[in-house]
Design a protein around this nucleic acid. Structure first.
Lengths: 162, 162
DNA sequence: TGTGAAAAGATTAACAG
DNA sequence: CTGTTAATCTTTTCACA
């Protein structure tokens, strides 16, 4: 069954698990259990429950874009001329499926979308904007900014004090 | 040794590994090998090499922010008044260490930083901006936009045709 | 719920082609 | 560089407190 994420109540063991795994995602279940002073089976059980309750939604592989021939990253801010649901959904679906797009933010406010993309070089970036973004008639305006550096913050790791 | 990421040359087996793992990061080495028609040891060897060469930089856990009590996400666009290296580095370090910050983009162009944050509610968002962003004297202006939805794109997965 | 021990499964290392 | 085997380690399962 697909549980409602928001209904899950997390106790302090769950929070410690998430905190450890957030800091060190490559821990095995065994190592995690020993850090937390739990039996392996207990730890595995909690982990599975966190997944089934939708708290842990998955894992991801971090890949170095440069190594793959995409040394240039950019944020493309997109503003629309029309906001009909149909157009917006279609555009979002298309953008999300476009190779090179790492993340696509759908926003409220001045910019309608932020696209985080990785490309080969400046020319590819120009082509990307022209061929994949402004080609959609619903797009009124774009503004492209280079990404100098991208860092991960602490994110939503549970505060230990709660 | 820390290898130079850009010097790694990827053959078609490496690319297939990355493509499979990008699509399905939870595959075990064994399952991956069988999908690609490789021996497990070969696949494991390739994987380790990809890590040592800095192509695969790590793994990450995806956690549902709502379940942890942060149902609201926003992008805070930050513009600076001064761009001295010292000030910029200090600010970036501080922001990257601030709880609630998921990612911090350092950009070239109109906005100097984009902060992707998760917070409890609108009031917490206001407090975040005031207490953690505009509190820095080097920040001249901020603009906050709500995140309606965030999707992952295909990213930099190797194209099979290369 | 949580635990410990046995069974099943996955990874690693050594070696051969 | 690839594949096979065997040893090691991890995860899963289950009876029981």
């Amino acid at each position: 069954m697909k549980a409602q994420p928001s209904t899950a109540t997390l106790d302090s063991v769950d929070r410690r698990i998430l905190s450890e795994l957030g800091t060190n995602p490559e821990l095995t279940n065994k190592a995690l259990a020993s850090r937390l002073g739990l039996a392996e089976s207990t730890c595995a059980y909690r982990l599975r429950a966190l997944r089934e309750n939708g708290v842990i939604t998955g894992r991801r592989l971090d890949v170095d874009a440069r190594s793959l021939g995409y040394p240039l990253q950019a944020v493309i801010k997109v503003r629309l001329g029309s906001h009909s649901q149909e157009h917006v959904e279609k555009l979002y679906d298309d953008l999300t499926a476009t190779p090179g797009v790492i993340q696509a933010y759908h926003l409220g406010g001045a910019d309608d979308f932020h696209l985080h993309v990785a490309v080969e070089d400046a020319e590819a970036l120009r082509d990307f904007v022209l061929q994949h973004v402004t080609v959609h008639r619903v797009v009124r305006q774009t503004e492209t900014q280079l990404v100098f550096e991208l860092r991960d913050g602490p994110g939503v790791l549970p505060r230990e004090t709660a």
